[in-house]
Design a protein around this nucleic acid. Structure first.
Lengths: 340, 340
DNA sequence: ATGAAAGCGCTAACAT
DNA sequence: ATGTTAGCGCTTTCAT
């Protein structure tokens, strides 16, 4: 750059850098910085990356931007990244492990210093890929059977427990569960928490009370709920593995001519935006999306800095139950076959 | 890389590149590519960028990821970027020109080959910045007074015209408009289209029928709508500059004890997701978000390739009116003071 | 058809 | 306190 200040490039480099500017006479530092300012000098990121082996860049992989839970997570990540001069690439798994793997390879080729992966499957080749390439990796919201991975997640079991307790308090006993695909950790964990919590209350969950949706989506939820309603004419409440599935439940319910919450209470998971505006505002388990993003970025940055991949961390965040209008006490409709 | 094939790096480079692999004997090409595959060789993006002066990277600037209209735009952009081996950085303006400027500088320092800017103000220093730095720029959804910029936008005037015509068809005459900040092009254009369309029907819009919200947000909409209702007890319909403002209108309406659509019809703009689920599903102007993203990426890539910045293009997309339940014929409530 | 060498812009030894 | 130089990994002249 400013070599018409007739000084050497290395002096300039040193003057501009925070750490090494101390070696340079304050006077020169000032002159260089002023000149840089004036002529709008910007460090060439490619050259820096090539020389230093760090791009100050990370990759984020999410299933799908259209799922409203991810924007806040992303913002959380970026808010801390910004503070450290990092920038993020965004890629999508489309809920498909193969796609995720390909995307991670692309990101690695881009030279990212680390990866935040919010789409892991219970067994996922991405974690081995990152491990073998020495790329720091943190998992958000999903967990992997392999173990030994940095993770930021919410206490799903607690969330489900809160949902079940809420329903129990309202008097419901015949409670169903629409699970997500079992190769996704949250689906699995939430389902297990459901049966376990029920058991703690001496309530056995019969198999027909559980239906697995083939995806964590509205359409899959509708389909699964139809099946459920067909085989559970007596159920009075349902817990859905996430909000999108819960929406599908609403649709199926309507097709069966059932009303919510009168005939059937529904609780979701995630607390997606705008739920308050809905015709039947959904009771759901709220998770701190933004904070999850923040924590995962902090964790990743720590790993990148430390190069200390010996010990892994697991950050566990607490969910909250948001009670709205899709759940109601069991009374009227169940008088006849009251089970308490 | 594979120099234990004891061949020169340049041969490897040529063999791997699509264009120059023709100069190399097919046999060698095959061997090199196979080796690359096996050892998982990935081109170093930083070195490529430094040598070639192109990062195969672009920047996207949007106001805010939380606004649900942007995710589909982003996906549209990325879907075409992917096809050409480009990757995008995402940055936020927070609806603030200064922030946008800073972010653009950061992106330029990252070496992006071009920028897609979905947050322009009517006069915006970002376009001069890009122009002076020779960085291709395309504007999405917003327009700039400067002219001479590649743009992808929807026909806002047509959208508003459809909204007005719809209301008129329903018998409404006392129609109000909640505008957005006038330094944002869409606000300005939509407001102008409103008064103009009304005029075309020989309906004069008195000043008190128009209130400007200080942002394109729910809170600002609520505030503006309160003002509006205070000074327009006789209005029967309102057009909001976007859906978020329309939501704010709902809230204000409720505070005044008014119902929608019975007492007041409301139409929004954007057709954000999940509107069908709302207690009062909002009638709104739908715009092709995903397609806008695609077109803007195509346009940008074309500019990057061509280096031909002499002529600018303007892509104009058509909106569509989606009629839901927030608009209803003017009858019952207006019998007394019927104005037709 | 392939090798040798230069150079993209930067930082960090290594001089001085 | 500052200048000199080498080298990060790649592509591309220029040789051969």
């Amino acid at each position: 750059m400013a070599e018409h200040l007739n000084i050497n490039t290395s002096t300039v480099s040193r003057a501009l850098s925070e750490k090494s500017s101390e070696m340079i006479s304050p006077d020169v530092v000032k002159r260089v910085r002023k000149a840089a300012q004036e002529m709008g000098y910007k460090q060439n990121a490619a050259a820096y990356a090539l020389k230093m082996g760090s791009t100050k860049t990370i990759g984020m992989i999410i299933p799908d931007l259209m799922n409203p839970v991810f924007p806040p997570i992303i913002r959380g990540i970026q808010s801390v990244l910004d503070q450290y001069g990092y920038t993020a690439f965004l890629a999508y798994s489309e809920n498909n492990e193969g796609t995720a793997h390909t995307e991670v390879e692309r990101l690695i080729s881009r030279g990212v210093d680390g990866i935040i992966y919010a789409a892991a499957f219970r067994t996922d080749s991405v974690v081995d890929l990152c491990k073998s390439q020495g790329i720091p990796l943190v998992l958000v919201n999903r967990v992997v059977d392999q173990g030994d991975v940095d993770t930021v997640k919410v206490d799903d079991s607690l969330g489900i427990k809160m949902a079940v307790d809420h329903l129990l308090d309202l008097g419901h006993r015949k409670i169903g569960f629409i699970a997500g695909p079992k190769n996704i950790s949250v689906s699995y964990i939430r389902l297990r928490a459901f049966t376990r919590t029920m058991a703690e209350h001496d309530l056995e969950v019969e198999p027909h009370r559980i239906v697995e949706a083939h995806a964590l989506s509205e359409a899959a939820g509708e389909q699964a709920m139809s099946v459920f309603l067909g085989q559970n004419p007596d159920a009075t409440a349902i817990i859905a593995s996430n909000d999108l599935i819960a929406l599908g439940c609403f649709t199926a319910l309507k097709q069966f001519g059932y009303t919510c919450p009168k005939r059937m209470s529904i609780v979701g998971f995630n607390n997606m935006p705008y739920l308050d505006w809905f015709a039947t505002p959904l009771t759901t388990v709220s998770i701190p999306h933004f904070q999850m993003g923040e924590r995962s970025a902090e964790l990743l940055l720590k790993r990148i800095k430390a190069d200390n991949v010996d010990y892994n961390e697991e950050v566990l965040l607490k969910p909250k139950l948001v009670i709205r209008k899709s759940t109601a006490p069991l009374i009227a409709s169940k008088k006849k076959s009251g089970s308490t």
